[in-house]
Computed example of a mutant assay.
Amino acid sequence: MPHTSFATFTESLRRRLQQPLPGEAAHRRMMSGSRQRMSVRPNEKARRSAVLILFYPYRGEIYLPLILRPIYDGVHAGQMAFPGGRMERTDENLIRTALREAQEEIGIRVTDVQVLGQLTELYIPPSNFFVQPVVGIMPHRPDFYPDPREVEEVVEVPLATFLDETIVGDTQIEVRGVLIDAPFFQIQNHKVWGATAMMISELLAVIASAEIPQQGT
């Protein structure tokens, strides 16, 4: 991956995102034990939302940002996530939702984002959200201006970090007074688990099958 140019990577990923996605098969790798035992499906009251998975070149590598949510009275307080949020009536589609929310939360310029495609929508039972992950790129590292009401910290992560199998672990996390088994990615002293980890798992499966050539081949 470090030997792949950003242009080659993004074009290969764009083509791969137009093909059938691994979906739930990839999600299961990072799915909690309780979720695997339950049949969780969106209901008629589920709210639509979207997140942005944004790649950009930086220091000779490919990066993407995660955000740390601040502590608040909510089910996702203090968790690592992709920037995103609920769909508004003024959003013409979920791609617009992802871009708008990313601009509001981390201050990126949406006019600099090129959308490559989308991953599989994912239902999040605790918040009753049906989330569409949108994959995009920027030609340079963005200037981040996080909204302190929504974002405690922007965590920039090299893609190569996610390709390291040693960062994958399993732990027990208390959710609403119940301990659940939760696979996670260990990222810069933060555990990335739950729906975000499931999205990352599908993303990595897509990248692995994208047939991205190495330089000189």
Rank of each mutant, 00 (worst) to 15 (best):
R149P: 00
M80Q: 08
N43K: 03
Y145H: 15
Q79G: 03
R47M: 05
Q103A: 12
T120V: 04
V206G: 00
F162V: 01
N43H: 07
R14M: 06
L13E: 07
I124P: 00
E61A: 15
S49R: 08
I62F: 04
L116Y: 09
V155W: 12
M198D: 06
L54D: 05
L122K: 09
R96K: 02
R100H: 15
A46P: 00
L122D: 01
V155A: 09
L159A: 13
H27W: 15
V110R: 14
R47A: 08
F162H: 10
M80D: 07
L99H: 03
F55L: 15
L159P: 11
A26K: 13
M87A: 02
A81K: 12
V155N: 07
T171W: 02
Y63V: 05
F144A: 10
P57M: 05
V168D: 03
Q36K: 12
V157W: 10
A208S: 14
F9E: 05
D73K: 04
D147C: 10
P148F: 07
E101C: 13
E153M: 08
R14N: 03
Q215L: 10
D170E: 09
P139W: 02
Y72F: 07
Y56H: 08
P20Q: 04
A98L: 05
A182S: 02
R48P: 03
P148Q: 02
I108T: 05
V154K: 01
V206K: 01
Y58V: 12
Q79R: 06
E104D: 11
L68I: 03
L64R: 11
P22R: 09
G194Q: 05
S209P: 02
H27T: 03
A160C: 08
L54V: 07
L66A: 15
H3F: 10
F55H: 07
M38E: 06
N128H: 00
K191T: 03
T217H: 07
A46R: 01
N189Y: 11
Q214L: 13
V131Q: 06
R16H: 09
G177R: 04
R15K: 14
F6G: 09
V115L: 02
E24K: 13
P2C: 08
R100I: 00
I212L: 08
E211N: 15
R100V: 00
A26I: 14
V206S: 01
V40F: 00
A25C: 09
R16Q: 15
M30P: 13
Q79H: 05
E174A: 09
V168I: 15
G117S: 02
E44F: 13
R15E: 10
A208C: 02
T97R: 02
Q79V: 11
Q19F: 12
A160H: 04
V157S: 01
T10Q: 14
